[in-house]
Amino acid sequence: MTGIALLGAGIFAKEEHLPAIEASAALTLKAVYSRSQQSAEALAAGSKDPSSVAIYYDSPPVAGKSLDDLLRRDDIAAVDVALPILHQPGVVEKALRAGKHVLSEKPVAGDVEGAQKLIAWYEGLGGGAKPLWGVAENWRYMESLRYAAQKVAEIGGTLVTFRLHKYGFVRSDNKYFNTEWRKTPQYQGGFLLDGGVHFVAGLRFLLAVAGQEIKQLAGFSALLDERLIPVDTVHAVAITQGGQSGTIGISFGTEFKDGMEIEIVTTRGAVVWNPTEVKSVASKGNGSNEKVEEKKEFPYSSGVTAEVGAFAKAIEAGKVDALQTPQEAFRDLEILQRLLESGAGGATVKAIGV
């Protein structure tokens, strides 16, 4: 089995990544790291066997306990990086330089410029076989979303339109809101960046099955709740390379509207997805106007266990999973950033992939 370390901070690393690593038959958790001793100890305490997990931290400084010390261990071949957004790129680079395979949390970086720089550096690594770098986007591994993609493929046809609508409200007692780096974000978009790349990834996943990718967008943004700085809502129109238009609405500030849906409409039918249900309607194809409607329900699953499992398989195969490439994560980030830029500019049209 591959020895792996979890470089994490906060609730998500403990409640999602830690059990996902321990559920993998191909990975052995050997160490955890967090910036402070207290958070590192809390992270390790959540493991199945805390006594078998070494603890590393940088504050307070203790000889032999730093991140650099962890990365020097020969028995650790890979690291799972689940740190705050702005801290991740530097740690990712440091771990790759140390020869460790890396699975880093989304987004790939805090902004497009930083992501381009990091990806270019990685692609330029010379010498022998370089370590693998995958970017974790668990939505691409959700069973319900994959089933929705299957239904889009089965129905077929040419894309007509699409819709991504995510609404909700981040309350003051929300466990994620009460992580300081999210409460006072030093990065663009606040929750729209932190959570929004998930929604964009889901939309892109289904659009790809229909043979399309977003190439232009224009939208308006707003701050509906002053706690959720710098902006918590965006509404936009997006256009694919084939000229089909659709809508994107994302808000974390709508107290009395809640829900998550992605809809793909083609010339032969439609699929509507949410995390626990997939609905589809399609023509019977017998020349009549009759339609076939289906609905399938799913227990909620974040997809994190599956994404960590895919990373473990990638290490064994020596090639990163296509759904975890930094380039794939970059496209999610680019669309999200262009949404924010367009909103700030009053619906200025933004090109994607130029």
Rank of each mutant, 00 (worst) to 15 (best):
T2F: 09
G3H: 05
I4A: 15
L7S: 08
I11W: 09
A13C: 14
E16D: 12
H17L: 14
A23M: 02
S24G: 10
A26D: 11
L27V: 13
S34Q: 05
Q37M: 05
Q37C: 03
Q38L: 05
S39V: 02
A40E: 08
A40W: 12
A40V: 00
E41T: 06
A44T: 02
A44R: 09
K48P: 03
S52E: 05
A54C: 12
D58Y: 04
P60L: 00
P60S: 00
G64Q: 07
S66I: 10
L71D: 10
A77K: 08
V81C: 12
A82G: 13
H87E: 12
H87P: 15
Q88W: 14
Q88I: 00
P89N: 11
G90Y: 15
R97P: 12
A98R: 03
G99D: 14
K100M: 04
L103E: 03
S104R: 01
K106D: 12
A109E: 02
A115M: 04
A120Y: 14
E123N: 07
G124F: 13
E137D: 05
N138G: 15
L145Y: 04
A148L: 01
K151E: 06
V152S: 03
E154Q: 09
L159Y: 04
L164W: 03
H165F: 12
G168T: 10
F169A: 07
S172A: 08
F177I: 02
W181N: 08
Q188D: 14
G189V: 00
G189L: 09
G189I: 01
L192E: 09
D194Q: 15
G196P: 08
G196I: 07
V200Q: 08
R204Y: 04
L207S: 02
E213F: 00
G219Y: 03
S221T: 10
L224D: 10
D225T: 00
D225C: 02
E226K: 02
L228H: 13
L228N: 13
P230E: 09
A238E: 02
G243D: 10
G243K: 04
I250C: 03
G253Q: 12
E255R: 14
E255Q: 13
E263R: 05
R268V: 00
V271F: 00
N274I: 02
P275T: 00
P275N: 07
E277R: 10
S283L: 01
E290F: 12
K291Q: 13
E294W: 06
K295F: 01
K296I: 05
E297D: 06
S301P: 07
S302I: 15
T305M: 07
E307V: 01
V308M: 08
G309F: 01
A310V: 00
A312Y: 10
A314Y: 09
K319P: 01
Q324E: 14
P326I: 01
F330V: 01
R331S: 04
E334Y: 04
L336K: 06
L336A: 06
Q337Y: 09
R338A: 11
R338I: 09
L340A: 08
E341K: 12
G343V: 00
G345F: 05
K350M: 03
